[in-house]
C-alpha cells in the first residue's frame, strides 16, 4: 500500500492513476453505463451529433459511439493485459533459461530473440494475418512476439549478473536445485524492473491493437475497437468529425494514463534512488 501512496504523492503519477482507473472502471461497467448495443444498427440515426441521448453521437451505421467506445475499451484492455501478462511470463521463463543455462543455449536463444526483434511489427502483423485471417488472437500473438524478446533479454542480462553472485553460489553449495535457485534466489531480484517496463508497454500494446484494427488486421466488425472506430471516422471524415474524435480520444487518454503511471513507478523503484 505504501507504493500507492508514493504514486499519489507525485502529481503526474496521481493524474496517470486517475486516468487508468477511469478507463478501467468505464470498461468494466460498460453494460451499466449505456443502454445501447454497441453493435446495434439503426440506419435512421446515422451521423447524429453528440446529444443527451447519444453522448458521442452515432456512426455511419447509426450505432451509438459512446457505447462502442466503452465496449472498445474492454477489447483494448483485454488485449493489453492478457498479451502483456503472457509476454511477461514467457519473457521471464526464457530469460531465466538463457541466463542460467549453458553458454551454447544462451547463444542460440539470443540469436532467436534478435531475429524476432528485427522483424518490423507491421510486416509481422501482415504476414500473420495473411496466414490466419484477422482476429483478436492474431493481434495478441503479434504483441507477444514483439514484446517477449525484449523482456527475455533484460531478464537474461540480470540473471547472468546474479548467476556468479555469492548468494547464488551459497545456494548452490547448500544443494539447492536449479529450479529453487531460479525461483527463490534469482526471480525476486530480477522481476521488479521488468514489471515496470511492462506497465510502460501497455499503451504501446493498446496502440498496436488500435493500429491493427484500423488497418483491418485486428478485431472483425461488428465488434467495437478504438482502432476500427478511428478507421470509420477516417472514412467518414467529410460527414462528421465526431467518429474520429470518439475513436482517438480514448486512445490518447489511456496511453497518457499508463505512461504517466509507468514513469512514476519507474522513478519510485529506480535502484539508483534507493537508500536515500
Amino acid at each position: 500500500m505504501g507504493q500507492v501512496r508514493r504514486v499519489l504523492r507525485e502529481p503526474l503519477g496521481a493524474f496517470g492513476l486517475a486516468l487508468v482507473v477511469l478507463v478501467v472502471v468505464m470498461s468494466i461497467f460498460a453494460g451499466l453505463l449505456t443502454q445501447y448495443d454497441p453493435a446495434g444498427l439503426s440506419p435512421r440515426d446515422r451521423f447524429l451529433d453528440p446529444s443527451t441521448t447519444h453522448l458521442l453521437g452515432t456512426d455511419q451505421l447509426g450505432r451509438d459511439l459512446f457505447s462502442r467506445v466503452l465496449f472498445g475499451g474492454r477489447i483494448a484492455l483485454y488485449v493489453a493485459l492478457v498479451s502483456t501478462a503472457i509476454s511477461l511470463a514467457a519473457g521471464i521463463v526464457l530469460g531465466l533459461i538463457a541466463g542460467y543455462g549453458p553458454r551454447w543455449l544462451d547463444n542460440v536463444m539470443i540469436l532467436l530473440f534478435d531475429a524476432l526483434k528485427s522483424f518490423p511489427t507491421v510486416m509481422l502483423a501482415l504476414a500473420l494475418v495473411t496466414l490466419t485471417g484477422p482476429s483478436l488472437t492474431a493481434v495478441m500473438v503479434v504483441v507477444i512476439i514483439v514484446n517477449v524478446p525484449g523482456y527475455a533479454r533484460i531478464i537474461r542480462t540480470q540473471t547472468i549478473a546474479l548467476k556468479s553472485s555469492e548468494f547464488v553460489m551459497a545456494a548452490q553449495s547448500m544443494g539447492a536445485s536449479t529450479a529453487r535457485i531460479l525461483r527463490v534466489h534469482i526471480l525476486p531480484n530480477v522481476i521488479g524492473p521488468i514489471v515496470i517496463l511492462a506497465s510502460m508497454d501497455i499503451p504501446v500494446v493498446i496502440a498496436i491493437e488500435a493500429g491493427m484494427s484500423f488497418l483491418g488486421l485486428g478485431v472483425r466488425p461488428p465488434t467495437p475497437s478504438w482502432g476500427s472506430i478511428l478507421n470509420d471516422g477516417f472514412a467518414n471524415i467529410r460527414e462528421t468529425p465526431w467518429i474520429a474524435i470518439a475513436g482517438g480520444l480514448p486512445i490518447i487518454v489511456t496511453t497518457l494514463g499508463f505512461t504517466f503511471l509507468g514513469e512514476t513507478l519507474r522513478d519510485i523503484f529506480d535502484p539508483r534512488l534507493k537508500g536515500r
Binding site: 553472485s165 555469492e166 548468494f167 553460489m169 551459497a170 545456494a171 553449495s173 547448500m174 544443494g175 527463490v184 534466489h185 531480484n189
Partner: peptide, 17 residues
C-alpha cells in the same frame, strides 16, 4: 552437502537480498 557447508567472502553479498 548437509555434512559440509561453505561460507562465502562477502558477509552481506552472500545472503539473498
Amino acid at each position: 552437502r548437509q555434512r559440509m557447508s561453505m561460507m562465502f567472502q562477502d558477509p552481506v553479498g552472500s545472503l539473498s537480498p
